[in-house]
Write a protein that binds this DNA or RNA. Structure first.
Lengths: 156, 156
DNA sequence: ACGTTATAGTTACAATTGAAACCAATTGCA
DNA sequence: TGCAATTGGTTTCAATTGTAACTATAACGT
């Protein structure tokens, strides 16, 4: 138990950062904790990574996307999407065909097995989200949504 | 420009996740964006990673920590800390000695060069944090702090 | 004091990730 | 047309990270 420690510099000479009050650091800790909790749910049961799950999630909502479109919607880069897809296709969770009018593009959709898995994982993910939100008052939940909307909006 | 796309399933049969409204996903995007912006500031100027910067930040506040204590305060695991430290010591930014009464423990502190760098980077990091917070109203900033305090508190 | 267990930190090896180069198909346009 | 530039996607190689094993020292229990 390392109790309170003497700060290196009591004077403001160096003005060191207080990590535990530094917003970027706090966001990083929270995000990692939350994502890891959810990831544990599916990584143990199914053999799937967070990136693969995100790809499946967008394909559940939008059928027939190309890999590039998946990349856009998941905020992943195209290499990561390519790798996730090759695993998903190999595992039989995603069907990949070629676009009729553009042989470069792939046309992606969940397979039957992919849907089955999705329908098991999606409720778990939502349950974790609810758990998290349950720690806030209704009022706080509204503010959080509003704050994230602002901070995530592209136009600065 | 892929306009609005037809959802794969209009009926609630599969209840797909809406990633863009899913809290864990939004936290992840925000956290990554923010951290990367700050990291760009120092990665280009100095040759240093985010983990190394975090180690320096805690050593700026608390002199003479051991590696394990650094790990605790940065929420990094001990291997990551060990690696960060070996680079920092090699680069002459951190001085490492051995604890008098326990030869296993290291005693760490920023070197003069480390302090110089710290004093240049810390204000930049704070400036980025201010930039981010400037996008919120004062009221929202208060709520955000309160919400993060709650979500980060250990006792669930 | 002595053997067992625990702790601090590093090393080694595998798995993951990132960046650049690459291939193939398509588009733009002289 | 035909050829340069662009786009969709994959591959390759290096760098980063994660996990387990390991070394050295210290603490504990008898």
């Amino acid at each position: 138990m390392p109790a309170t420690r003497k700060p290196a510099h009591i004077d403001a000479e160096h003005a060191p950062l207080q990590l535990e009050h530094f917003l970027p650091y706090r966001l990083s800790i929270l995000s990692n904790t939350v994502s890891q909790t959810i990831a544990m749910d599916y990584q143990s049961r199914y053999d799937i990574s967070m990136t693969e799950w995100r790809v499946m999630a967008v394909l559940a909502r939008f059928e027939g996307l190309s890999a590039r479109e998946v990349a856009e919607r998941t905020a992943m880069d195209k290499v990561a999407v390519s790798r996730a897809l090759s695993r998903l296709v190999a595992a039989g969770r995603v069907d990949r065909t070629t676009h009729d009018n553009d042989k470069r593009r792939s046309v992606l959709q969940l397979s039957a097995a992919g849907w089955t898995m999705h329908d098991e994982v999606a409720p778990m993910a939502r349950a974790r989200e609810r758990e998290l939100l349950a720690r806030l008052d209704p009022e706080e939940r509204v503010w959080l949504t509003r704050i994230l909307d602002k901070l995530l909006s592209k136009s600065h």
